[in-house]
Write a protein that binds this DNA or RNA. Structure first.
Length: 564
RNA sequence: UGGGGUGUGGUGUAACUGGCAACACAGCAGAUUCUGGUUCUGUCGUUAGGGGUUCGAUUCCUCUCACCCCAACCA
């Protein structure tokens, strides 16, 4: 099993402690986990935590981790999901020891079902769904035993074989485990093991018309594969006694696996309901499962979230049994930390405002002089080297970087003030032009020729350094800015429907951006830092389209917020 | 209703199983800085509630409260 070793391996949690104890006391002599998705949808950030947990725990104990598809419901599953899940796990950076399918165990599961029938521990029930549900009791009502509960083993066997042979219609009968209709745990009130379904299965085709339920397939699959520690989410805790009961009835090829439950990952401003996510896609609120606003792994990837940042985040938050919701800001801080170290710096002007250097020289032919400056690709990493950026007398700066009448603590360009154009010169604002509506259309400034490279020989300081592009050398680009898809921290908390908290303006597309020429060479999918703005992912199919991964930390924004 | 699970700063996670409640994110203040970024320093603030055992309780006992899950022929 190959997994990256960037995650902390010295952390402790209730699962790791359990495993240590199992090892120490000789209950197991190896560790095997599995990640068991149903191939009926796309993986999202919540799944990343489960994947991280299963793979990292196995790695910490020198064990193995399988990828097993729990494909026991032909109605909802599809190969495209199998392929998507495999690709997403690989992207996340994990390599399963083996990729397996519960459907490969259908024969074994069937044999074991017959064994239970012969032992008098399972029976065929011919009642309909509604009746069975009513008889299960609950909400203060006692369970009622099915009239078919005490059939002979021979009769059950005959019926079950004919179920498999396709003699009965869908829903006509089911195989049930014979446990205890008065059990206080509802899961043990004669649970369904098999139902008749004529859907086409993505792997077994039409070979089967009966399909095992989750409970009858899951633990047995774990056991067949040799799973030692079966980790799942909290809502399965009441299934654990059933998990154990089934395994106790069967001759297993390995030691018995045990199930442990931990809390799912939830994030603020994020909704991970598969059905509702599908609704977002279907209604066109987002552009697809890989829309950069989606919490899917495909979406996060397109947005520019590094897989390593997602892994680090998952490892950091650890596993616990408390239902909780992590702040999306924490994930974002992991993304920034990773990108700060790795992303190449570039200059990009998102909302251009013309800046004219009025004392800029012309050459012998009367054309403005063009100079080239060498700037660092990443000040955090000298090995990333430098690049050349063209500079001349006509530039674009960010509209936000000039104010004719600035509020307190505004450090940027304003009439009379000197600032630095990053890597180039110190310039002083001498005036500005406006249109009929008073909008600033052009800023005028003079440069100090003695400050070439950006520092003054007399050592004077400026309060602000600003990014810029040369009007004649910059190239156009489209930049998509994203807000949170859901405005509420807990989508749906107020009304019960997450869709009520949807921000229908969560994407702003800027088409007039001017960016430095080097950005045209950015590989598809790569994330760069637009200096002073944020991290942006070059789209993987549309050249010169950039998605904002996450903004830089912005103290000025905080100041403005406080100023109201 | 029955059963199961969980409660620690604004948020999330820890605390050698009885011994100074810590780490991160967020916030605030300062230093550094050719990114209002980064980095560094400081600061803020926590054991759901009552009772009990104990020299000492987040930890043990007890009662109460709150929240989550199960009661599909989904997983």
């Amino acid at each position: 099993m190959a997994v990256p070793d960037d995650a902390a391996s010295d952390r402790s949690d209730f699962v790791r402690e359990q495993i240590q104890q199992d090892l120490a006391e000789g209950r197991v002599d190896r560790v095997q986990t599995r990640y068991p998705p149903e191939p009926n949808g796309h993986l999202h950030i919540g799944h990343a935590k489960a994947i991280n947990t299963d793979f990292e725990i196995a790695r910490d104990f020198g064990g193995t981790c399988m990828l097993r598809f729990d494909d026991t419901n032909p109605d909802t599953e599809d190969v495209s999901f199998v392929e998507g899940i495999i690709a997403d796990i690989e992207w996340l950076g994990y390599e399963p020891t083996e990729t397996l399918f519960a459907s490969d165990y259908f024969d074994q599961l069937y044999e074991w079902a017959e064994l239970l029938i012969r032992d008098g521990k399972a029976y065929v029930d011919e009642q309909d769904t509604e009746t069975i549900r009513m008889q299960r009791g609950g909400y203060g009502n006692p369970g009622i035993e099915s009239p078919y509960r005490d059939r002979s083993a021979d009769e059950n066997l005959d019926l079950f074989r004919r179920m498999r042979a396709g003699e009965f219609d869908d829903g006509a009968m089911v195989l049930r485990a014979k446990i205890d209709m008065q059990h206080e745990n509802m899961q043990l009130r004669d649970p369904i093991m098999y139902r008749i379904r004529r859907g086409h299965h993505h792997r077994t085709g039409d070979r089967w018309v009966i399909y095992p339920t989750y409970d009858w397939a899951h633990g047995q699959s774990d056991a067949i594969e040799g799973t030692t520690h079966s980790l799942c989410s909290l809502e399965f805790d009441s299934h654990r006694p059933l998990y154990d009961w089934y395994l106790e009835q069967l001759p297993l090829p390995h030691e018995r696996p045990h199930q442990y439950e931990f809390a799912r990952l939830e994030l603020t401003h994020t909704m991970t309901s598969k059905r509702k996510l599908a609704q977002l896609v279907a209604s066109g609120v987002v552009e697809g499962w890989d829309d950069p606003r989606m919490p899917t792994l495909k979406g996060l990837r397109r947005r520019g979230y590094p897989a390593s940042a997602i892994r680090e985040f998952c490892s950091f938050i650890g596993i616990a049994k408390t239902n909780s919701r992590h702040q999306i800001e924490l994930l974002e801080s992991f993304v920034r930390t990773e990108l700060n170290a790795t992303a190449q710096r570039r200059m990009a002007v998102l909302r251009p405002l013309r800046l004219t250097i009025t004392n800029w020289p012309t050459d012998d032919d009367g054309n403005p002089v063009v100079e080239h400056f060498e700037v660092a690709n990443n000040p955090e990493n000298e090995a990333d080297g430098t690049r050349q950026v063209a500079f001349s007398g006509e530039l674009f700066i960010e509209q936000d970087d000039f104010m004719a009448d600035p509020p307190p603590k505004y450090f940027r360009l304003t009439p009379g003030r000197e600032v630095r154009l990053r890597g180039a010169y110190l310039v002083t604002c001498t005036g500005y032009e406006t249109d009929d509506e008073g909008e600033v259309t052009r800023v005028l400034a003079t440069y100090d020729p003695d400050t070439r490279g950006g520092s003054a020989p007399d050592g004077r300081k400026v309060k602000s350094t600003m990014h810029w592009v040369s009007a004649a050398h910059a190239v156009p680009a489209t930049v998509a800015l994203y807000e949170r898809l859901f405005t509420a921290e807990v989508p749906g908390e107020a009304t019960g429907d997450p869709m009520d908290d949807l921000d229908h303006d969560s994407r702003e597309v800027l088409t007039e951006c001017r960016v430095e020429a080097a950005l045209a060479d950015t590989p598809a999918g790569e994330v760069v830092q637009f200096e002073r703005i944020g991290y942006f992912a070059h789209d993987d199919r549309t050249p010169m389209l950039f998605h904002r991964t996450v903004g830089l930390r912005d103290e000025w924004a905080n100041i403005q917020k406080r100023q109201g």
